[in-house]
Nucleic acid binder design. Structure first.
Lengths: 187, 187
DNA sequence: TGTACATTTGTCATGTAAGGCAGGTTATAG
DNA sequence: CTATAACCTGCCTTACATGACAAATGTACA
């Protein structure tokens, strides 16, 4: 799943709430940097150029470009485990939020739009595999990385990978392993 | 890809029944949030900012902005009960979504922005009172109406009212009572 | 109730950016 | 390989911003 690094004029237009014609004019006037494809002369705008343009002109920056690139949602019912994980990650410079139950996990996932979640597979009243399926079925969550953190069996962890987890971490784990796994997901 | 709905000053003016010049003045005075396009300085008002402005000043909110004014999220783990409720409500013309567990309840609450939720207090792994407290602590959910549907005791239902439920309905109930309760919340 | 002042809103004219349409071309999906 | 969706260009129309001024509305006070 390659991240989108460039925008077409149409996409940029939707983000700005204007007609694509207007985007082209901004490009022509040199306000917005872009390059042209050889074929039809399509414009392509690099994401960083687009964001720079938005910032320069005080236009709102869509969350998916701005969105806390180093924020993590920890889904874990065991409070000690949760605070241990969040302590380690905060020390690494991440913004960390914690959900102790399924409801707040769902609510925070939708509102905070974290870059990564750590997901405990076995929580009371919460089917971790179901959560994975849900996440992978949502278009707006396709950039979300999921690290399954669980004491499950090998088979269970493999199933999680099949269901769309980006990585798994077997409990108990070393702090370094956790940090390494998260960093790897955020490359 | 988030489709951002925005309004021009002219559109906003029509909705408010005023001259577009007035809309611009409201923006200049900081009453209404908006951003400017680089070219001529056209204003663009994000739909959510516009709705917030309307609410703040007790102006009527046009239906098309009012989220789904007749949409209901049914939070209920018992599938038969859930489909019974949703059948009754659909027949009344409501748009109904169902969450069978806490996670999807939280996620759907944040994404669908329903006008009402029916909440079962006793669901495995989900503390109904906690959900109520969460809802009432969130600014953007302050317009959400909560109908608690439960087989709880009188005391339990009263506690739910204390925690912020807008109405309660004791199981078992008549279909008419359900419809009546929902309609009353949406006056 | 009436008057005077302050504030807000609407109107007009002008310049210009943004939007719409048609016609052709090319990516892109299936 | 085909069908469809998306994009580009050029031309024309629409609608917005701005400033100055007029009208309407609100407020204070006698």
């Amino acid at each position: 799943m390659a991240e989108i690094r460039v925008l077409t004029t149409g996409e940029a237009a939707k983000y700005c709430g204007v007609n694509f014609r207007t985007i082209i004019r901004w490009i022509e006037r040199g306000k917005l940097r872009a390059y042209k494809l050889p074929g039809r002369g399509d414009h392509r705008i690099r994401e960083e150029d687009f964001v720079a343009f938005l910032r320069e002109n005080d236009l709102p920056v869509p969350e998916e470009f701005d969105g806390a690139p180093r924020s993590v949602l920890v889904v874990e019912d065991n409070k000690e485990m949760a605070s241990a994980i969040s302590r380690v990650l905060r020390r690494e410079g991440f913004t960390v939020d914690v959900a102790h139950d399924g409801f707040s996990a769902g609510a925070q996932l939708a509102t905070l739009k974290p870059a990564v979640i750590t997901l405990d597979l076995k929580m009371p009243g919460l089917d971790g595999y179901g959560v994975l399926r849900y996440i992978r079925s949502q278009e707006e969550l396709k950039h979300l990385k999921v690290l399954v953190v669980s004491a499950e069996t090998e088979d269970g962890l493999n199933q999680a990978l099949d269901e769309g987890a980006n990585a798994v971490l077997r409990k108990p784990f070393e702090n370094d392993a956790l940090v390494g796994a998260i960093n790897q997901l955020l490359v």
